[in-house]
């Protein structure tokens, strides 16, 4: 199953997560997709959580693994469109200090 739909907005590569329950069943595939984008040379990746209703620690772990790979390759990962619950979870474990979080994709246009 494809975890993310990939699109381009200006200089940004947008990976829109297509699953509502972003959990351990999907985390490995998600990480693989993000790392592939970085290895292809994409430097500004925006991960959109627009369709995600909840996220678990496995999925967040995959996102952080991808971020580490991005930093090592001079790329960046921006997180977008978090619902209140997911944003609160980011804040709870202080990932809001690690990722740039934007409320929507309008700023990219």
């Amino acid at each position: 199953m494809i975890t993310c739909k990939i699109s381009e907005i200006n200089n940004y590569t947008v990976a829109t997560i297509l699953i509502a329950e972003a959990n351990l069943d999907h985390s490995a595939k998600f990480k693989e997709q993000l790392i592939k984008l970085i290895d292809e040379g994409k430097q500004k990746i925006v991960v959109s959580f627009d369709l995600v209703t909840y996220v678990d620690s496995s999925f967040l772990g995959a996102l952080v693994a991808a971020l580490k790979h991005a930093i090592a390759n001079d790329a960046e990962i921006i997180v977008a469109c978090l619902n209140k619950d997911v944003e609160d979870l980011f804040k709870l474990i202080r990932l809001d200090k690690v990722f740039t979080i934007i409320p929507n994709l309008i700023a990219l246009a």
Binding site: G61, V64, A65, K68, I71, V98
Partner: peptide, 8 residues
Amino acid sequence: PLNMFEHF
């Protein structure tokens, strides 16, 4: 971030 353990 580079030293962050990926288990939360």
